[in-house]
Amino acid sequence: MTTLLRLFTLLATALASAWGATAAHGEVLVVVSESGGAYDEAAEAFRAELQRLAPRQTVVVNPVGNLGSMAEYQLIVTLGSQAARSVAAMGQRPPTIHSLVPKATYDRMAGLKDGRDTAVLLDQPATRQIDLIRVALPGFGRIALLEGGESRELVGQLAEAARERKFAVQREVVMRDNDIFTALQRVLSDPAALIATPDTTVFNGYSIQNIMLTAYRQRSPVLGFSASYVRAGAVLGLYSTPAQIGRQTAELARAALGGQPLPPPQNPRYFEISTNPQVARSIGIFLEEPAQIRASIARLEGVAQ
């Protein structure tokens, strides 16, 4: 069975290479970090949206393991960090949109050039996060932030956006895993909305337990950046689905194919809100429906969703 599977993979790869090599000028190459799951979802949404915007545009989707020459493509789209890194490492290549990547990954990538590379990041803009707290948790005047080695800039932006919107900010630096316990006690000494950041030195699969439990006990809602966060116990989640990222990437690709220069890296334009009403109620918070909250934020941002 395994041998058969290997043979099949080999064949599929060979076929894909052959096809890649004969690609016609003007095609868009989508490089996915791996097949399945979020990458397929984003690739599918990208293809559908681009097809809608530019019905004649052809799109080729290749896995990251199969990168031939890229010169003949008009535009490259990478989905995921692994694809982004592999493509960025290639010298001669057409303009590239790195999509479905965290800002931390993109900022550290080598081989990027302004004007040739841009990104659709997974990270939500700081202002949107603060607006969400303002809209969904009107009673909360405090925002708690934990700053780790990878999130100094982001936490700075969040703090600034929060202060601009008249929030009191509780901020602590976490340099080691062991500091989280004390840092949490301090930032949540009074109930505050704790914003989780994608800094894995602070927020990771196992510190999450400590963070959720302490926040819960201190009657402090957590704002997470994924649907998993909400399932884990965050009161609010703000994130973009792979399909939404795919859609935004297609819009950007359309503009680029139309001859416009690539803009600087973008935060997600389309986003989802999800809520955990059980946890919210249990700490005495009543939430509006996610759709209502999302509409309020979209209004604040002046964007139609």
Binding site: E34, P102, I208, S226, G233, S282
Partner: peptide, 28 residues
């Protein structure tokens, strides 16, 4: 978890605040 750092955004997390751990809302 999918490979790469986007796992932070797209991956699963353990359910920490399970229904059994929550204080039942008094109104319910």
């Amino acid at each position: 978890l999918p490979p790469g750092n986007e796992a932070t955004f797209l991956g699963e997390l353990p359910v920490v605040l399970t229904a059994a751990r929550l204080v039942q809302a008094q109104r319910d």
